[in-house]
Simulated assay, not measured.
Amino acid sequence: MLEAFAELSTPLLADACVRAGVPLRVAPAGIGAVVAGQRVAGRVLPARHYGSVDVFLEAYGTARPGEVLVIDNGGRTDEACVGDLAVLEAGAAGVAGLVVWGLHRDTPELVEIGLPVFSYGSHPPGPVRLAEREPEALLTARFGPHLVSSEDLVFGDEDGVLFVAADRAQELLATARRIRETEREQALAIRDGRTLRQQTAFDDYLARRAADPSYSFRQHLRRIGGAIEE
């Protein structure tokens, strides 16, 4: 999956979701890679954190190679829920990366380990709490307003993280590739002196909008085959 995602980006996938009418499931702003430039893509391996690492170790026991551990720590900013040992063990289990709705610690060690880890950032203390575990602890994970499971794929890069249903992934990846090609052609044309306004027949759009105020630029782009917004 990481190979299929190699020449794409989360913005392109987000645009593909809009074009295909698929609900956008994007991680809250601020989730990013511990090591700048790292990317992650794979099937979700969900885990809800309650204060102990045992839930991660249990998840690793059923992990399939290439899965991505998606950790629900409720977006907490008062504790780090993963560190070097949890990440090392993830690599040993064949996990392709970790995406945390929360914080990490042991940053220098994570950089050295090299396994992609996405989180809100670093924080020295680990958890001092131990909450009651829910039956869904290893079945689903919350990430912001979204609920994800092993039926989903996760993609992460320098722009953030998003989730898509596994059964729509190939369609969305193909749509994202088409959008990428259109945008590349438009970028080359701008560099060659053909402005974006010319490419999108912007004067024509303004005239149509004047005649019909409900006519949107997005409708216009779809009519002429532009990309820009989606």
Score class of each variant (00 low, 15 high):
3 E>P: 01
6 A>W: 03
24 L>R: 13
26 V>K: 12
26 V>E: 13
32 G>H: 13
32 G>F: 00
33 A>H: 05
33 A>E: 05
34 V>F: 03
39 R>A: 11
40 V>D: 05
45 L>W: 06
46 P>G: 06
47 A>Y: 06
48 R>V: 11
50 Y>V: 14
52 S>L: 13
57 L>R: 14
59 A>Y: 08
63 A>L: 09
63 A>H: 08
80 A>G: 14
82 V>S: 03
83 G>V: 04
87 V>H: 07
91 G>K: 11
94 G>R: 07
99 V>T: 04
103 L>S: 02
105 R>Y: 03
106 D>G: 04
110 L>M: 10
120 Y>F: 15
128 V>K: 12
130 L>M: 14
132 E>Y: 08
132 E>L: 14
136 E>N: 11
138 L>F: 05
140 T>K: 09
145 P>L: 08
147 L>P: 00
150 S>M: 10
154 V>W: 08
158 E>F: 01
158 E>T: 12
166 A>V: 04
167 D>E: 15
167 D>Y: 01
170 Q>R: 14
172 L>K: 05
173 L>K: 01
176 A>S: 10
178 R>Q: 15
179 I>W: 06
180 R>P: 01
185 E>V: 10
187 A>R: 15
188 L>F: 12
190 I>G: 00
191 R>G: 12
191 R>N: 09
191 R>I: 12
193 G>D: 07
194 R>L: 14
197 R>D: 09
200 T>A: 13
200 T>M: 12
200 T>K: 00
202 F>W: 14
204 D>P: 00
204 D>T: 15
206 L>F: 03
215 Y>A: 04
216 S>E: 07
217 F>W: 08
220 H>K: 06
220 H>T: 04
222 R>D: 12
225 G>Q: 06
227 A>H: 02
